[in-house]
């Protein structure tokens, strides 16, 4: 069907639709009162509730934490975002200095399939986050500008770096304040804990297609 024919049919349908009275303007986000004296505290609590491992770190202490996690997984390489895209500076450079190697994240234009399977066995992905949502314990990631989508999706463990100052109350707050985050990139993801399923007798199992473990390092920059 063509666009015009399709939309004409929809227009005619709306003319006779039996709907309750509706608002004239799009209602938009509901910004209710979810205030708390300790936004970061709530973020940590809620993210922990969904089985993320959350650590509040200082700029100086962050690298040690990342290295500790790398050792935990016995990983010597990782897929990550470049330092320029990270809210905590110097992590990539620090890892390289300690002998860890980042894997290239570009899709080779001549061999797409190779890229699709390149991270099949990779254990650790390291990304930044644009912000956090305290109410649900979520992190928000926009992709593009060398920010790999696969880094937070394929490896078994995802390490996310987040600045405390970018945590807002809830998804509604984020959507109302940062609507441009959707248009700015081709892909925005809100991540709330590690990948999970309850499909088999509602038994909670972690790590189906996405990471089994999510580690969030919150930089205390307030």
């Amino acid at each position: 069907m063509d666009r015009k024919g399709f939309l004409d049919r929809v227009r005619q349908a709306t003319a006779t639709a039996d709907l309750p009275p509706v608002r004239q303007d799009p209602p938009g986000a509901l910004i209710g009162d979810l205030s708390t004296a300790d936004l970061v505290g709530r973020f940590v609590e809620r993210a922990t509730e969904v089985n993320a491992d959350v650590r509040v770190v200082t700029a100086d202490g962050a690298l040690e934490q990342v290295v500790g996690i790398m050792e935990e997984y016995k990983a010597d390489e990782y897929l990550g975002w470049p330092d320029s895209q990270m809210p905590i500076p110097g992590i990539g450079a620090g890892l390289i200095a300690r002998g860890y190697s980042p894997r290239p994240s570009e899709v080779p234009s001549d061999n797409r399939l190779l890229h699709q399977t390149a991270y099949y066995d990779l254990v650790v992905g390291i990304t930044g986050a644009d912000g956090g949502l305290a109410e649900s314990g979520s992190i928000v990631l926009t992709h593009g500008q060398n920010r790999s989508r696969m880094a937070s999706l394929i490896p078994d463990a995802h390490i996310a770096l987040l600045a405390a100052s970018t945590i807002v109350e809830s998804l509604s707050h984020w959507a109302a304040l940062k609507s441009e985050s959707v248009t700015r990139s081709a892909n925005l993801v809100v991540i709330t804990g590690p990948s999970r399923t309850g499909d088999i007798e509602m038994h909670l199992t972690q790590g189906v297609h996405g990471p089994r473990h999510v580690h969030i390092l919150v930089l205390d920059d307030r």
Binding site: R46, V50, S105, E106, V107, R112, H115, L133, E135, S136, G137, S138, H143, G144, Q145, N146, R147, S148, R149, M150, L171, V182, T183, S185, A186, N187, L188, V189, V190, I191, T192, G193, P194, S195, R196, G198, G210
Partner: peptide
Amino acid sequence: GTGQRLSVYTNLVSGPRRHGDPDGPD
């Protein structure tokens, strides 16, 4: 639906990958 505050992944896709995107669909 499931009693979660948000599902694990809320994925917003606005078109194919853009210039400078290392991955995503063409």
